[in-house]
Design a protein around this nucleic acid. Structure first.
Length: 271
DNA sequence: ATGCGGACCTGTTAGC
DNA sequence: TGCTAACAGGTCCGCA
């Protein structure tokens, strides 16, 4: 589920619930995630007080008075507030009691996600320290993307999915933003004009902001049983539309595999 | 430094 | 209906 907009929606939904809660019983059923869940997590976390829930790239950062819980949803992860008594299903890997008869439950069938812990400054964490700018913040500018792209031969779609360049542009929104900007996904990043790079930055921003707005409405009951409900309801212009007409020019949407990922574009308006 | 392919996992869907 | 193959929203690592 998680591209950046959904991670942000999850963060926004969890923040008001979790803030100020004291962590109770912690159960780790499966520690074999993307990285091993720290063995001492249950002991360390239990009794801590949650301060705030933040996000960096697609990492959810649950700050407490003892350190920071880092959660990544990978491809199939969910993080939901559920009743403490709810029976654990297959793939419910970590439960974190939060009082008031509730717990925070991490579920991830494919186990590409991660649950980690740090007591150091979060921005110095090895998974975070080398990340590029947030796409919705001011550091992500045409100037930055243009400078980074010069002399790069990589396809622009691969380039904008590189987390050292900009974070949070996943496979769906990479295709979508390039369609909005009218740029062919296979175009060498270094050969795109400054004006078009500016346009691309604007469209990456727009598509993510639009999706967050939609996620906010379609996922606002994500704490309930149907946490995944509605994600696909949003309008995607090219992703998953191979062979269908372009919404702008009517030409056929194309599909190819680029960097091992499905890539979609319009044969008419993306050069 | 850059760019590419492989790796990590399981579930769902398409096709024979 | 049943088996198999292809595919899935992420991202780190190692090699050329």
């Amino acid at each position: 589920m998680p591209e950046l907009p959904e991670v942000e929606t999850v963060r926004a939904g969890l923040a008001p619930i979790l803030s100020g809660r004291r962590i109770g019983k912690v159960t780790v059923r499966c520690e074999q995630l993307r990285y091993p869940v720290p063995t001492e997590l249950a002991t360390t976390l239990s009794g801590a007080r949650i301060r705030e829930v933040r996000r960096r790239a697609k990492y959810l950062l649950i700050h407490t008075n003892r350190g920071c819980l880092i959660v990544h949803l990978g491809m199939t992860g969910t993080l939901q507030v559920v009743p403490q008594r709810r029976v654990a299903m297959k793939h419910d890997h970590v439960d974190i009691g939060i009082g008031q008869g509730q717990m925070l439950r991490f579920r991830d069938p494919r186990r590409f996600g991660a649950v980690l812990w740090t007591e150091d400054e979060i921005h110095e964490h090895p998974l975070i320290v080398h990340l590029g700018p947030e796409p919705l913040q001011e550091l992500f500018t045409g100037e930055w993307l243009y400078a980074k792209s010069r002399k790069r031969k990589a396809a622009v779609k691969t380039f904008i999915m590189d987390s050292k360049i900009v974070v949070g542009v996943g496979n769906i929104y990479a295709s979508e933003s390039l369609w909005r900007a009218g740029i062919h996904p296979k175009r060498a990043a270094g050969r795109i004009s400054r004006a078009r790079i500016d346009g691309l930055v604007a469209q990456i921003r727009n598509v993510l902001a639009d999706a967050i707005r939609q996620g906010g409405t379609t996922l606002n009951d994500f704490q309930g049983a149907d946490g995944e409900l509605g994600y696909f309801a949003q309008e995607l212009a090219v992703y998953g539309r191979e062979g269908e007409p372009c919404l702008k020019c009517g030409n056929e949407i194309q599909r190819a595999v680029l960097g091992q990922r499905s890539t979609f574009w319009c044969s008419g308006c993306q050069g």
